[in-house]
Every structure is written in structure tokens, then in C-alpha cells.
Write a protein that binds this DNA or RNA. Sequence first.
DNA 1: CACGGCTCTCGACAAAAGTCAAACTGGCAT
DNA 2: ATGCCAGTTTGACTTTTGTCGAGAGCCGTG
Lengths: 317, 317
Amino acid sequence: MAIRPAEQLIHKAAWLYYAHGLRQDQVASQLNISRASVAMYLRKARETGIVNISTSTQLFTDDVLARQLEDALKLDAVWIAPENDYVLDPSTDIAVLAASVFLELVKKGDRIGVAWGRTVYTIADVMSYADLQDVTVVQLCGNLGAPYSYRPDQCTMEIARRLNAKGLNFYAPLVLTTEALADGLRAEPVIREQLADIGNCDLALYSVGTVDTDSHVVKCGALSPGEMGVLREAGAAGVIAGQIIDAAGKALDCSYNRRVISASLSSLRQIEKRLMVVQEDSKFEPLLAALAGGLCTHLVVGASMARRLLDHAEKAS
Amino acid sequence: MAIRPAEQLIHKAAWLYYAHGLRQDQVASQLNISRASVAMYLRKARETGIVNISTSTQLFTDDVLARQLEDALKLDAVWIAPENDYVLDPSTDIAVLAASVFLELVKKGDRIGVAWGRTVYTIADVMSYADLQDVTVVQLCGNLGAPYSYRPDQCTMEIARRLNAKGLNFYAPLVLTTEALADGLRAEPVIREQLADIGNCDLALYSVGTVDTDSHVVKCGALSPGEMGVLREAGAAGVIAGQIIDAAGKALDCSYNRRVISASLSSLRQIEKRLMVVQEDSKFEPLLAALAGGLCTHLVVGASMARRLLDHAEKAS
DNA sequence: CACGGCTCTCGACAAAAGTCAAACTGGCAT
DNA sequence: ATGCCAGTTTGACTTTTGTCGAGAGCCGTG
């Protein structure tokens, strides 16, 4: 297949249509092809990021509530997805907003850390395509051969694909059975280098996990419900990039955390822009923990969660 | 006029349509308005930069010729508008390309210097809208009460308008009758400050002018054809931001230059990204002068000009 | 060299988006 | 209170765009 002429054609069609504002039939006659082909090329152009359509997320930051939250939580920016306003699936709404925000935060040449979870995968799924050749997307934590489709490497690769960026995966299990083995694996050059470089990321994207028995880490088999119960007794408050954090946002001192292959919380905190996205209202406590730990500079949440956070912050002060 | 609810509606419509991918009738029923209104809101959204549609200019840099020119002229990037490829007005084509390139180079928070001329105005005219609130567009040179519509302040304002940016004009004549008056005016705080700040721009946009009798500066009355003839004898090779440069790209030592109120060439050279756009083939010599003077880091030209430049560079070496 | 299997392309139809004049709204001056 | 104006909104119409199945070209294979 002659890929180059095809690419050229797509590009030219997109150029004439979007930049010059010609109609599809005019483009077709310019390029001596049928209008149907032009329509198809244009779809491809949108799908490959040759054409970029983005909507400003202004509206969601302009919100009074968002401003108050920024001040109260000392965050760089907060976006709030309205909930009862128009009748759409609110969690999709949050993901769509998060995807837009994410694309707005990405700059050329950036290195981006991506964790995993249903939320991150949903965001990847609704994210529009872009053409950021010199961007690198790195995986923040080890893999899990989960029955679910949203594995860490898939999240990373999907986002890289959408961005036309380079995806950097590392293939280690998220959690090992012994601490010794985990230490050994972390010392492996391939793994070491990737983990060491995480602090150099410009942007991170993650959500936070719950610590109850239907938590994501439990469903994926990283922890048994029983183990999770024990950890909760020991002060577990949330999950970040596969690691258990306490209510203060510190890594919980426990065997599990020592057996995990993932970006350290301190390296995550080195990342300038940490975009946290929370879809479910049930993640209130975990989110508080993550906020306490300084694991988030940019936040995307739904309206009801935003109100709860603000209430909490006001009571605390 | 209730501007706020209207803005909100435009934003919501744009959000549902572009980010969520709903159809216009679906958006209409969500928002309880007619589909016709939705169509109107969407047009407004595009016109105000709430929605951004941009096409990658990759294709034009990918060109072999562009790469060769980058190397030969030691430029950061070169874009070449194809000419005999599809039958459009080539000079419009260059302007459309330049506008896209310009938008690609602008970052949030940037300060942008804009000169004047037909080329710059044409670019402003075809430039699509964007929503860059914290961008400042500054005028690089004094005004001319020309009969033509592309005055420096208009170029600046139009580009600022398209970008939703702040436009910073300064109202001084481009050229004065005596050097003493020019010195005095340059010493005025309003003018001084603006001129002093030009080196802090992140991006500059200008073209280069010819030095013949139908040059832009002559048509605008800044110079008489006779004066221009004398300057040409004295080594004038081009015009940058209203100033005459010689073949080496240095400001020509002449009374006219001393009477001009404009950004100094050295302050222009302090600007990191200097985007030069040349539409007419007749500007070959002036462009060479500008290149020699290091007044350009990013270049947009047509294919025939590109070939001439490359030929010239190869002969020189 | 004939045969699937493949992708690319086109024409025709259906769906969606754009447009416009007419109706409507709410604020303001008379 | 009334009429007027500027700006919205709408329904009906037209134009433009998206889609889909049929057909054409192309290659490697038997």
C-alpha cells in the first residue's frame, strides 16, 4: 500500500476544507476525486489528529464553585462538570471534560505519566485525536493481567495512540509475592530507568481508587478482600497508581506497598502538573487523602463532589 | 443585553456538539431550543474561539525542500506553500498557511510583536479565531495614516481580536520630519516603555518590504519615490517594520531610519521566534537581506521563492 | 493466468447542517 | 400604557455532508 500519497491526499483535503474553508465538492474537484472520497479523507484527518477540534474548557473553570475550591484546596485549577443541568451520563461527562482538560494541558515535547483504572481508560476512550509527535506517554505503574480491559499498558498505549505520541510501557507485574523479588525487579535497569525518569514528567494523569472490597485493586486480584480489610484497619484511605495511601496521603507502611512496582509518591509529587480526575461520589475519602498528600494540582470532578469537598474544607477551617 | 446567559448557552451548545459529539437536534432538545438556534450558537462558538479547529501544518514542513532550506539557511523551521499543485490563489495560500503556523507557534501567556503590511493584514484576515485570554499582541512600529486599510494598529488589533488577546497599540507616526522630534517622541514614557518591552516578546510576525518605487513605504507616503531612489543608491535592500535595511540586514545609516519610530532591529533579534512570511516573488532580495540580518527564525514562503533561496544558498557555499 | 481477498473509489440516497424571512421578546423612550 | 427597536428565536426550505453497497483495480497465490 502506497501510504505516502494517501497521507498527502488526506492532508491536502483537510487543508483545503478546514484551513481554506472550501466545500467538500470544491475540494473534490481540486483534487480530482469524488466528493465521497473527500468526506472519507476528512474523517480520517480528524481521526489521525491532522485536524484538531477542541472546545475551550473555560466555562467549567469560570464557575464560582470551581474558584472557591481552587482557593480552599490551594490547587492550580479545578474544573467542575455540571450534573443536573442537562441530562447526560454524568460520569461520561466528567471523562469528556477531563479529556479536554488533559489535551489543553499537554504541550509539545512533554513527557506524560499515566496511571490506570476505569476512569483513566474512559478518558482515553473519549479523548479526541491530536498530532503531538514529540510527546512521550509513560506508564506509571506495573501491569496487572486483569480480566478487565483497562490494564495500565493499555491506558498508556491508547492515550499515546490518540495523541500520535510515543508510548513507553514497562512490563512488570504491579504487585509481587515477596518484597525481595520486588526489590530485585525494581533494580533491573529497564525498570529502574523508567521509574527514575518519572519525576521528569511534565504532566501526570490519574484517578484515585477506593479501599473497600469492591475496589479496583481487589477486583483485579492485586489484593484479596481480606487483605484489603486488614489494610483498611491499618489506615488505608485510598489507592494511587496501585499504591495504598493513608488519610494523610502518605504511602501506608505495609508489605503490599513494598511489593508494588510503581512510581513512588515522591516522584509523582515532582511532576509539575498532576491532573486528578474523580468520577464516582464514593471516592470522597480517597480523594481527600490524595489531596492531603499533595498528589494533585489540577482537579476534575462532578458538581456534587465539588460541593462536598468545599463543605469539608470550610468545616475544617 | 443579557450577555452572560448567552455566553453560557453558546458554550454548552459547543460542548455538547463538539466534545460529546451529539447532533445539532440532540443538542437542541437538551437545551430546549430550536435546532436553528443551535446552528447559530455553534457558528458564534467558532467565531469567538470557544471552539478551535486547526489543521496540522506538518505536511508543509515535511517537504524535502523545506528541510533543505532549514539546513541551508540555519532556520528553526520552514514551511513551503505548494504552488502549481492545486489551482488556488498562491498568495492567499501562503497567508492561510502562515496563519496556521502562527497559531501553532503561539503559546498561552505569550507576548507577540506584530508589524504591518499587506501580507500581515492578509494573514490576520484569514486567521481563525482562538481563545487565548492571556496573550498580548504589541505593535512593533509607528502608525501611518495611509489610504490603505492595513495600518500597523489595525494589524495588531485584528490579530488580537482573532485571538481574544489584549492588543497593545501605540500611537506615534511611523516617521517624523526631523530627527530631533523623533528622539523626543521616543523618549516619551508611553512610547519608551512599549519599545523597551519588545525584546521580551516571545514571537514576532512580520514580512519584509521592497525598496523600489512601488514599495509599501512609498505608497503609504513615508518616503517619496525620489527619496527611495537615493536610499537604494545608498545600499537599501529591504524594509523591516518600517526601517530600511541594507543587504547585510543592518539598519541603513540614513536620516530616514533615524526619524522612524519602530522596534530596533536588535530588539527584534532578541525575540525568540521570528516568523517571517513572504508572499511575493519580487521580495527575493529584501528577504535575503532580512535573512542575512538574522531577522528570521521561522519562514513561510511559496515554492518558487523556496527554490530560488535554495539555489542562492547553494551557489554561495 | 485465473482466482479469491483486499483496499480504494464512486454514485445515489439519507441524514444533518446552514440559511432566511417572519414572528417574537423584553427593554426603553415617549 | 403604548409603540418602537434591537436582538433572538423559530419553522420551513435549501444546501451540504455522511454513508453504504456495488464495482473497479491490485496483488500474491495456487
